[in-house]
């Protein structure tokens, strides 16, 4: 099929053949037939143009919709996934782990004394700091299915599918040292080193019908609080 108008083209060819065959009863009949055929051709041309325009518009709309879809899942400041995407993926991974009876781990990271950092260095510097921490986290959670998201203001969350607590702790430790090694000055930090640090909570679960996503989220939150209460710049698994 060369065009989508094969049937129309055949019809025109047939009509033109009929005109050539000189089989009309009168000249008037032939002229009327010719006029009708011309009218048909011009209307067909219109239809072709409408389809062309419509295809163009649809292609453009599709591209815009794809772009919007990406934007709606990304946190503009850090370039990490946003909370909405996190919730969607966690839901999917939870059900997948339920079927495969695998474990799923969450790593929750919170920047220590971030409010003090903002108060001391200003919000623009604070934003830069968030971006740098985000980049470090992304660098250590890089398996294809790992998801790093900005969970709240200065809170980040990693979904590690098919991961036991031991594996998650390894990722957490890397991030802890990674942030420390950046040696970002934080003169308002009550911690001895006076550099920017993070606290990390870790939880893992093998989903069952008795457990829920909320439980896992509560657990990881508790783990983070334990890390905060243990002097910060540390990680605590549950």
């Amino acid at each position: 099929m060369k065009t989508i108008f094969t049937k129309e083209d055949k019809l025109i060819a047939k009509a033109e053949k009929l005109i050539k065959s000189n089989s009309f009863k009168s000249l008037e009949d032939e002229e009327e037939y010719r006029a009708l055929l011309d009218e048909y051709k011009s209307l067909l041309k219109q239809v072709k143009r409408i389809i062309k325009m419509s295809d163009k518009t649809q292609t453009e709309l599709k591209a815009v919709s794809e772009k919007l879809n990406v934007i709606s899942h990304i946190d503009a400041l850090t370039d990490l996934y946003n909370r909405r995407h996190f919730d969607e993926v966690l839901q999917k991974e939870w059900h997948s782990a339920l079927r495969s009876k695998d474990e799923i781990a969450l790593v929750m990271i919170d920047i220590d004394y971030f409010k003090k950092y903002n108060d001391t260095y200003g919000h623009i510097q604070g934003d830069k700091c968030l971006k740098r921490v985000a980049d470090i986290i992304k660098a250590y959670a890089k398996r294809p299915r790992d998801i790093v998201a900005r969970f709240g203001g200065e809170e980040f969350m990693i979904i590690l599918p098919e991961t036991k607590i031991k594996g998650a702790v390894r990722v957490g430790k890397d991030i802890l040292t990674g942030v420390e090694n950046m040696k970002i000055e934080h003169s308002a930090s009550p911690l001895k080193q006076q550099i920017l640090t993070v606290s990390i909570g870790i939880a893992s679960i093998s989903p069952s019908k008795e457990s829920s996503i909320e439980e896992l989220l509560t657990e990881v939150d508790k783990a983070l609080y334990t890390a905060k209460n243990s002097g910060r710049n540390c990680l605590r698994p549950i």
Partner: peptide, 14 residues
């Protein structure tokens, strides 16, 4: 707006 321009050209051609 390329699409709008191209559509204008389509109208014009007929």
């Amino acid at each position: 707006n390329e699409t709008a321009i191209e559509c204008g050209e389509e109208f014009k051609e007929d």
